[in-house]
């Protein structure tokens, strides 16, 4: 022991490629056996990011993603061993890289990959049967809100990122590999064992966004019509419920329309 640097502090410094400040660890860090630990730790961190951001990996290539993951892990190593959920800050980290300026889809794809993980590990929840909505008395529409399912994640983009994301995910079909300039939204839901994805138009998203804000069904319908005057809010609500977007009906926390 020496100079105030503890053995384990020095060991992790050496794992991270920093000067350990400890003579025994400095000597050990030069041995082939130390590289086994160093490689295993870095492989564990980088493998987790690569596994949790498959669309980013398909879009950029594995080599680029792994380099970005290593840089991320240097700045933000995992705080818990549940690596299945590692990478909460990775989209924001990518946004700070020079490559993000040249690849406008990069950060949105990462946000959707992250949302998939969140939906995948979200708490189990009820699924509201869409038929329940059809039976509601009209007077309840201003009072009740559709409670979002715990796994629901909804997004709106100025370009067709959802189609590009679906095209870069091996677990989904129906996407594409070109980023079209049309606006598009996406809902991720988990009505059964698997995360499912549904593209949204402006009316869908406006209604869902209002539901996520705790607004009443009546207010959500009004928001939907404001976004798309020709829309049928009742049909959209039914379709979103059938997707598994909602867990139940609750008192609205925000009833303004």
């Amino acid at each position: 022991m020496s100079a105030g640097v503890g053995w384990q502090d020095a060991f992790v410094r050496a794992l991270r490629g920093e000067p350990p400040g400890h003579p025994e660890i400095a000597a050990l860090a030069g041995l082939p056996g130390f590289a086994v630990y160093r490689n295993t730790v870095w492989k564990g961190w980088v493998d987790a990011i690569e596994a949790n951001f498959p669309a980013v990996g398909a879009f950029t290539g594995s080599r680029w993603l792994r380099a970005a993951a290593a840089a991320f892990a240097t700045a933000h190593p995992p705080g818990t061993p549940a690596l299945v959920a590692y990478g909460a800050g990775f989209p924001e980290f990518l946004a700070g890289l020079p490559a993000a300026a040249d690849l406008p889809a990069l950060v949105p794809l990462a946000r959707l990959d992250r949302a998939w993980t969140e939906a995948h590990v979200a708490a189990d929840d009820e699924v509201l049967a869409p038929e329940t909505l059809a039976l509601l008395p009209a007077g309840d529409l201003a009072r009740l809100a559709a409670r979002p399912h715990a796994a629901l994640r909804a997004f709106w983009f100025d370009s067709a990122v959802p189609t590009l994301w679906l095209g870069n995910r091996p677990d989904f079909a129906g996407g594409g590999l070109t980023l079209h300039p049309r606006p598009e939204g996406l809902a991720l839901v988990r009505p059964g064992p698997a995360v499912e994805a549904a593209r949204l138009d402006a009316a869908d998203f406006a209604l869902l966004e209002a539901c996520l804000a705790g607004r009443s069904l009546l207010a959500a319908a009004a928001a939907c019509l404001e976004a798309a005057p020709a829309a049928d809010p009742g049909a959209i609500l039914y379709r979103l419920a059938a997707l598994g977007a909602f867990a139940g009906l609750v008192e609205a926390t925000e009833t303004r329309s």
Binding site: T80, P81, A82, L83, V84, A85, H120, V121, A122, A123, D124, D125, A150, A151, R190, P193, A194
Partner: peptide, 14 residues
Amino acid sequence: PENYMVAGGPRLAW
């Protein structure tokens, strides 16, 4: 167990 330290979802169900 670290691979199952999640709130819910298919891993735990399986």
